[in-house]
Amino acid sequence: MRRWNGWVWTCAAVAMLAGCGGGGDDTGNSGFIPPNDDFNVAQAWHNLLTTNRGWTLTGSGTDGRIYDITVGTAVGPTTVFPVTGANTARSDVTLTTATTGFPTASALQQIHFDAATDRIVGIRTSVNQAAATCDLATSTSALPTTVKVGTSGAQATLTELNGCAGSSAAVGTITITWSLEFEAGTTYFCSNTTERNPGGAVLSAEGDCLQMSPDGTLGARARVTVEQNGVRVVAHTP
């Protein structure tokens, strides 16, 4: 995601691949059996947008490289989304990504959202302090408050722009879905992003997942998966 990603955790990693410079235990009966609890994914999303947090992830790519990703989220001020001029709540996401053979990359993403509904209004992103680009939401869906592991659904569709002005041209689309997943004893709330060019061809795909408890409390574990240019990277917290 320029990239949305749920939360642009791997925006800088994607740029490299493209050649550009506390919840409780949530296992089921064992680490291999998913819990049968009802999970509040709407609350998990709200908690992500409205709290200050941080994660450090390490993973490997099919290109043979090791990727180290550090992510922080912080509550931003009420501010104007530049594409539309609308006043919005804001969550600021920062990250650094390092891998062998490339300089450390950094990214800042500002998620503009409706404070009453937590629905995305738009996203402003800058990678390596380059000029910012924006993504404008064209449709959004409310996340559910009661779902089981294995459930998924639509979250948002955005138009990818080449700038952050009202006159900026469309250069693609971004589709975001949510899912509730279970892996090795951990239940994850995931935001899954697919980026397409104007012709509809997939350019990148990303899944950003956070450990969550049934009430929506976020935990310390995280998982990121990103695919672009034939390379797949999977990173986890320790």
Rank of each mutant, 00 (worst) to 15 (best):
N5V: 01
W7T: 04
W9L: 04
T10A: 15
C11S: 06
V14I: 07
A15E: 00
A15D: 01
L17P: 04
A18Q: 11
G19S: 08
G21P: 13
G22F: 04
G22N: 12
G24Y: 02
D26R: 02
S30Q: 09
S30C: 14
I33P: 05
D37M: 05
D38K: 09
N40C: 08
N40D: 11
A42Y: 11
A44M: 06
N47P: 11
L49A: 06
N52M: 14
R53C: 05
T56H: 05
G59F: 01
G59Y: 02
S60G: 15
T62Q: 07
R65A: 14
D68I: 07
I69M: 06
A74K: 08
P77Q: 13
V83Y: 04
T84W: 02
G85R: 08
R90W: 03
V93N: 02
L95M: 14
F102R: 10
Q109T: 10
D114N: 15
A115W: 00
A116Q: 11
D118W: 00
I123E: 03
R124Y: 06
T125L: 15
N128D: 13
A131I: 06
A131F: 09
A132F: 13
C134R: 01
D135Y: 05
A137P: 10
A142E: 13
A142G: 11
T146D: 12
K148F: 04
K148E: 05
V149N: 04
T151G: 02
A154T: 15
A154Q: 13
Q155M: 13
G163I: 08
C164K: 01
G166R: 12
S168A: 11
A169I: 08
V171A: 02
W178V: 02
S179Q: 12
E183C: 05
T186G: 01
C190E: 01
N192L: 07
T193W: 00
T194G: 04
R196N: 14
G200N: 10
A201S: 13
D208A: 14
D208T: 07
D208H: 06
C209F: 07
L210C: 03
Q211R: 00
Q211N: 09
M212C: 10
S213Q: 12
S213C: 10
D215Y: 00
G219Y: 02
A220I: 13
V224Y: 03
E227D: 04
V231G: 08
V231S: 09
V233A: 07
V234R: 05
A235E: 03
T237E: 09
T237P: 05
